[in-house]
Design a protein around this nucleic acid. Structure first.
Lengths: 129, 129
DNA sequence: CCTTGACCTTCCAGTTACTGGAAAGATTAT
DNA sequence: ATAATCTTTCCAGTAACTGGAAGGTCAAGG
């Protein structure tokens, strides 16, 4: 499929998809006319990149995450320890999102327009960890 | 407190803290010697920025999130609808992190070194939403 | 008091990860 | 055939830092 289609399905702008190719994250086939030709598997990877980037992983981290299932030659122990460290990061991110959620819920519930200067949100905003 | 101390407590590099001041996210006091002087409340905000940036919110989104509890003059309805839309985003991010978690767990559990070329991870990697 | 080292300051340049726009070729719609 | 809508490459600009130079400040030791 063409890049426009891949863009729609992955949620990434065509510009960004080309950029990811430039930096070697993804190498789609080329049609006879020179157009990039994306497979369903390519779109899966793009969607994966769109998500993990949006969740605060750097491009290099995303490259590692992609490598986790692409690199068939990597030793199993490496793959496992890499995945495990990413899983820890993910746990941490989920926890932080829950705390942020809690903070915003508190704001909505308790600071509805009649906020005093000592609104307690500010004291809780940095989380408890 | 000085910027080094604020950096340690917030998890943000001093460089980044100065940058956030440049773009108007935070205006610490200045001591007589010209050094920036951070309050506990400033550190809370910095920690908050460190977290929300790491969770994939843009600087402009972080500015809005900060405004949610800083801007006492904003109408309550605005604050609420802003918070609510951020809460939706947070829900989505948590869901995506859970899916990513699931994918990596699957990798660790089922692809330990004897991966066939048709490893099922690839098919699930883009999530189910 | 003086110096040494660890702070801090500003400023300017470089990097990462896009993002916009120009110029031109390919495809599709009328 | 021609216009609209793709697509290509290339080059420049932006966002969000990040590193380094040049210099001021401060607390400790001689």
């Amino acid at each position: 499929m063409n890049i426009g289609n891949a863009s729609e399905r992955s949620g990434l702008p065509a510009k960004t998809i080309r950029y990811y190719e430039d930096i070697g994250l993804l190498k789609p086939d080329r049609a006879d006319n020179g157009y990039r030709d994306y497979s369903v598997s390519d779109v899966h990877k793009l969607r994966f990149l769109q998500r993990s980037r949006g969740l605060g992983f750097s491009v290099e981290e995303c490259r590692q995450l992609l490598a986790l299932y692409e690199d068939k030659h990597r030793a199993s122990a490496d793959v496992k320890s890499m995945a495990q460290s990413k899983l820890q990061e993910i746990d941490r991110k989920i926890t932080e999102l829950r705390e942020l959620q809690h903070t915003l819920n508190h704001l909505v519930a308790h600071c509805h327009g009649d906020q005093r200067p000592d609104c307690p949100i500010l004291e809780n905003i940095s989380g408890s960890s």
